[in-house]
Simulated assay, not measured.
Amino acid sequence: MPTPATPMFPWRHRAQGDFQALLDAHVAAAEFPCVGAKAALAKGTLSVLACDRIDSAWDDLRIHDGLLNFAADYRADPGLFRSFAVIFGGPDDLSEEAFEAALWQRAQSLSDKDHWRGQGYDSGVSADPDSPHFSLSFGGEAFFIVGLHPRASRPARRFAQPTMVFNLHDQFETLRAQGRYEGMREKILVRDEALAGSRNPMLARHGESSEARQYSGRAVEDGWKCPFSYAGTPD
């Protein structure tokens, strides 16, 4: 009798190429506002992992393995404009609230596995989601998540498949050190405003307010509480 995983492998093989092509075309579109993602696409450093469902833990170990490898590769050869996109086969009809809940379920599960596998939390950020210095940490590296899905209210967050894009926090710090961060941020905001007709009210600089409010793309209310809780004790 085949194992439960057996039927998944042909699907993954097909989806990997399809999802990579889908994301590449989405980022390459003239109206797509994130110039950092466009730079990653041009450099060939926009990586994709095809997974089953965003509301299932089925692929969480595969995702965590990918994050550990991504972090290790970055430490071995630091460079700007790299992203790790986890693209899910469904569901494609989640409301913004349901997508947000699923995104944080995956983030919590991945963080728990990071702790279970003995990975330390990046000391440059906070594990407290209420802190203005919060970031998630995997493999000892801080990450900022950008959620994309079909029913996102902001056009820049609207994509055919539920997706979690993991961006290394260290890249933002490098851009700041090079004096390029503010100019790039403003360029993205201007492009996003041209696409949506208004600037995203959720965007804030790291250190001003918790970046957890930005991950799902939903305009969260003032009293919103992040459902994430780190299982370990950060150094």
Rank of each mutant, 00 (worst) to 15 (best):
A142D: 03
M8I: 05
A98H: 03
D114T: 15
L61C: 06
A102V: 00
R82F: 00
P33F: 03
A37C: 07
S123H: 08
D65S: 15
A15P: 02
S111K: 02
I54R: 06
A72R: 15
M8N: 11
E97Y: 05
P132S: 09
Q105W: 06
A107M: 12
D60Q: 09
G90H: 00
Y121E: 02
H26Y: 07
G66S: 08
H64I: 04
A101I: 12
G17R: 13
D65Y: 13
F19T: 01
A42E: 15
R106H: 05
G36E: 01
A15V: 00
G147V: 08
F99W: 05
T3M: 10
R117C: 11
A30I: 07
S83T: 15
A5V: 03
L94K: 09
L103K: 00
L46R: 01
F88L: 05
R14M: 13
D59F: 08
W116M: 13
G120V: 15
P7N: 14
D93K: 12
P91S: 09
S111C: 10
F84V: 13
D122G: 03
L22A: 13
F144N: 10
E100D: 15
L68E: 12
H26W: 08
A39K: 10
V146D: 00
L110S: 01
A50N: 01
L23G: 00
I87C: 04
S135Y: 07
D112Y: 10
V27D: 01
A28R: 14
Q108R: 14
Q119D: 05
F32C: 05
A142F: 06
Q20E: 14
A127F: 12
G66Q: 03
E97M: 09
